[in-house]
Design a protein around this nucleic acid. Structure first.
Lengths: 253, 253
DNA sequence: CATGTCATTTGACCGAGATCAAAGCCCGGC
DNA sequence: GCCGGGCTTTGATCTCGGTCAAATGACATG
């Protein structure tokens, strides 16, 4: 029943052997055999980032790709006049970087303290060619990302501000519950990895609208705010209803 | 200078040999060696669809994946109350279907007359495991789709109605010009594959707003409407400007 | 404890785009 | 040529979310 910093799992771990790495089961290396893992181990390096630190800039060459070991990374695109849209939010075990291209078309910024397990892009590409397991896992992860980003298109194009915020909270609550293997009961507390401004960039809203929708859900007794960054889900059923998504989706995902 | 039905290239071709197939260079089979192509040829079959015909339904099992030979296919998601968002528009050589899962989370519908070069999903998956070339090309195409869908998230989340429509027209004009290998001059005529309603679903707008923005661009002399479905680009520079995208982007893509 | 900074909340107002409604237009069938 | 149905356009009005502005709160520093 305490705050749940889902984006900090594996903290402290994963400075050394892949075998004991906290994201081993879900990351791009998940399907690798012991010898393949050894090769990966030979070319990996860790790098840490502070909140707000830029990991890669849109259009600028980046020699690295990798896996997020802990922390949260945002992918976003900014228009010339400053309008910004977050196009992805990466959590531990998610892949970061753009193989087969010199640069990614989006900015990657550390939202929290972040540790990335990095590979030189060309080494990674070469390994993909050699290792069916690595390439296969990467393909599956990319397909899942594509599905998720299309799902987000529905949110951005058609959902109301209320539905957007509720959807976001549902996703965070599910992720928290999923990792902690708890049933999705009322009273779950979720720590928000993002500021109101970052949420507004993710949801295609303004900061004021996000804040107002928080207040409204609070007034209605659907959630409670322990602090600005810590939400208690008081009534998950109503939150789900507010999200505009039909099923509770426990069948899939 | 005549209408340009980009979505009908390869019409008539591709009922037979892969070697002479119109989408051979760009489709998922692009990197396949002659023997691999032979294997593909052994398991492929063609299927045609009428405009409006459903190719696959969200969440329902589909035994097939494949490549679009000609025509345009929409991917979309519908909410319980009927709100609908298009999450992808597939053109010839694009891949359709969801390998490694029994079903896709989106509806696929033929927008025009469509021919698909199909493979049984499990055969395709098996071939991916055997053929590095096939899997590699599929991975690259999926990564490109992911980039494109994130680009679309910026449009849905942050662009004005005017910018949305202009962006869409720029993409169509580029695609038309690219395939015809002509410079992007003023006076290019683009045939719209979508009705106003379908465009509104793609752009996250209403049909009325789309129509109004067409009228406005016309009034301003940026475009002309030969018919409701055929647009002449009179001033590409101003159209680009109206799209809210900085560069003319001819460097990339 | 006073002060400054930064994130968040709340209020007042406005406007882009949605909604509701009514023509207009295109085309195919009779 | 006339009729009918489906797109598309245009108009009038409303509303949700954006904009501008100010107050409140949370902390860290001197």
């Amino acid at each position: 029943m305490t705050a749940n910093p889902i984006f900090r799992i594996a903290e402290g771990a994963a400075t050394g052997r892949c075998a004991t790495c906290g994201i081993r089961e879900k990351a791009v290396c998940a399907y690798c055999s012991p010898p393949e893992l050894l090769r990966l181990e030979g070319i990996k390096s860790y790098k840490d980032y502070e909140p707000g630190e830029e990991i890669a800039a849109a259009g600028e060459e980046s020699a690295f790709v990798g896996s997020i070991v802990h922390g949260v990374v945002s992918l976003s695109k900014t228009m010339v006049d400053g309008r910004r849209q977050m196009v992805g939010l990466l959590f531990p075990s998610d892949f970061i970087g753009r193989p087969f291209r010199p640069s990614a078309p989006f900015d990657a910024v550390a939202v929290t303290n972040v540790r990335v397990c990095r590979f030189r892009r060309n080494r990674f590409e070469a390994l993909c060619a050699d290792s069916n397991n690595l390439e296969r896992r990467f393909l599956e992860m990319t397909l899942d990302e594509l599905d998720a980003s299309r799902e987000w298109m529905l949110l951005l194009g058609r959902k109301s501000a209320r539905e957007k915020l509720a959807s976001f909270l549902v996703i965070l609550a599910r992720r928290a519950a999923g990792i902690r293997e708890e049933p999705l009961d009322n009273g779950v507390t979720v720590e928000l990895p993002l500021t109101r401004e970052q949420m507004s960039e993710y949801l295609g809203l303004t900061i004021e609208t996000v804040s107002r929708q928080f207040s409204k859900l609070k007034r209605e007794g659907v959630i409670a705010l322990n602090s600005a960054r810590e939400v208690a889900i008081l009534d998950f059923a109503r939150l789900l209803d507010a999200s505009g998504d039909e099923s509770d989706g426990d069948a899939l995902y």
